[in-house]
Amino acid sequence: MNSTASLMISAIIFFFILRGQLSGMHKPLKKSGITLLLPILYISTSLTQLFDPTLHIREDQVIIALLIGMVVSIPLIITTNFEVRDNGNTFIKRNRTVFVLLIVIFALRFLAIATIKSIDPSTLSFMCNLVTFGYIATWRIVSFIKFRSVTSSKLVDLNA
C-alpha cells in the first residue's frame, strides 16, 4: 500500500473518530460504552499491510512505533473525561482541546510522511499506522475504563 492510500485511509478513520467525539458530547453514550472501543476496530484494518510482501519492518521498529503511540495518547487520555448530566445519561465532557490534539497529531503524521525519506514509503506508512493504532487503542481503552468508573459511581449514587 502506498503512502497516499495509507493517508486516505487514515483521513477516513480520523473523520470517524472526530465525528464520534463530537456526537459523544451531544448524544449520551450507550450504557455499555462499547462504542468507545470501535475506533480500535477501525484502525486495526490498517494492520492488513502486514500481508504486503514488499513491507520490510523490523521488530524494534514495531515496538518503537507502538511506544510512540502510547506516549502520544497521554494528552488525549488526560483531556478526555465523562460526565453524568441532569437526565442521568453519561456524555463525553465538552473539551475543544481533544479536537486540537487530534488535528495536531494528524498533521504531524502528514509532516512525517512528507519529510522522512530514509525509510521506504510502505514501511513508513505502516509505522505511522502502528503509531496511530498505539495511541487510539491506549486512549480508547483508558477512556472506556474512565467511562465505566463514572457510570458505576453513578449507580452507587443512585442506590445511596
Rank of each mutant, 00 (worst) to 15 (best):
Phe147Leu: 13
Thr123Asn: 09
Ser118Arg: 10
Thr123Cys: 08
Ala107Glu: 10
Ser118Ile: 14
Arg140His: 15
Phe147Asn: 07
Trp139Asp: 03
Thr115Pro: 01
Ser125Val: 04
Ile136Ala: 06
Phe133Trp: 01
Thr138Leu: 14
Ser153Glu: 14
Ile141Lys: 11
Thr138Ser: 15
Asn129Met: 01
Thr132Leu: 02
Trp139Lys: 09
Tyr135Val: 06
Ile136Tyr: 03
Ser143Asn: 11
Ser122Arg: 10
Val142Ser: 10
Leu108Cys: 15
Ser125Tyr: 02
Ser122Glu: 14
Phe133Gln: 00
Phe147Met: 13
Val150Ile: 15
Met127Glu: 01
Val131Thr: 03
Ser152Trp: 08
Phe110Pro: 03
Ile136Leu: 13
Phe144Gln: 07
Ile116Lys: 07
Met127Leu: 12
Lys146Cys: 12
Ile136Glu: 01
Ala114Tyr: 08
Thr132Trp: 00
Pro121Ser: 14
Met127Pro: 00
Ser153Val: 07
Ser118Pro: 06
Ser118Met: 10
Ser152Met: 12
Ser152Tyr: 09
Ser143Trp: 07
Trp139Phe: 15
Ser153Phe: 06
Cys128Arg: 00
Leu111Gln: 05
Ala137Gly: 12
Pro121Ala: 11
Lys146Arg: 15
Ala107Gln: 04
Val150Cys: 10
Trp139Thr: 08
Phe147His: 11
Ile113Arg: 03
Lys154Gly: 01
Leu130Tyr: 01
Leu111Ile: 12
Met127Gln: 04
Arg140Val: 05
Tyr135Asn: 03
Ile136Cys: 04
Ile116Gln: 04
Arg109Tyr: 02
Val142Gln: 09
Lys117Trp: 03
Phe147Pro: 10
Ser152Thr: 12
Ser118Ala: 14
Thr151Trp: 05
Phe147Thr: 12
Val150Gln: 10
Phe133Gly: 00
Ser118His: 13
Ser118Lys: 12
Thr123Trp: 05
Lys146Tyr: 14
Lys146Thr: 09
Ser149Pro: 02
Ala112Asn: 07
Leu111His: 06
Leu124Trp: 04
Ser152Leu: 11
Thr138Arg: 06
Ser125Phe: 01
Val150Arg: 09
Ser149Phe: 13
Tyr135Trp: 10
Thr132Pro: 00
Ile119Ala: 08
Val131Asn: 00
Arg148Gln: 14
Leu124Val: 09
Phe110Ser: 04
